[in-house]
């Protein structure tokens, strides 16, 4: 599984951080998403897909 982030689109909602904290973090200055693990393992699959479906900016793209 490979994740791409549209960083300029991110509005810092923090939803991905709440859903998959092992994969997504936030910049302290303005809350923008930080991809902690661009290629997380299978154990994160469900959470990552949920985060992508919830993201208000459609800024999380999941492939592979």
């Amino acid at each position: 599984m490979r994740i791409d982030i549209d960083e300029p689109a991110c509005i810092g909602s923090g939803q991905c951080v709440l859903i998959a904290p092992e994969v997504f973090g936030q910049r302290d200055e303005d809350g923008t998403v930080v991809l902690l693990r661009p290629e997380p393992g299978a154990e994160s699959r469900e959470a990552v897909h949920e985060a992508a479906g919830v993201c208000p900016a459609r800024a999380i793209m999941v492939g592979g």
């Binding site: 810092g12 936030q26 303005d30």
Partner: peptide, 13 residues
């Protein structure tokens, strides 16, 4: 304006 204060609402904080 939103970015100026978003730091206060970061999940960790």
């Amino acid at each position: 304006l939103r970015k100026l204060i978003n730091a206060d609402f970061v999940v960790r904080r």
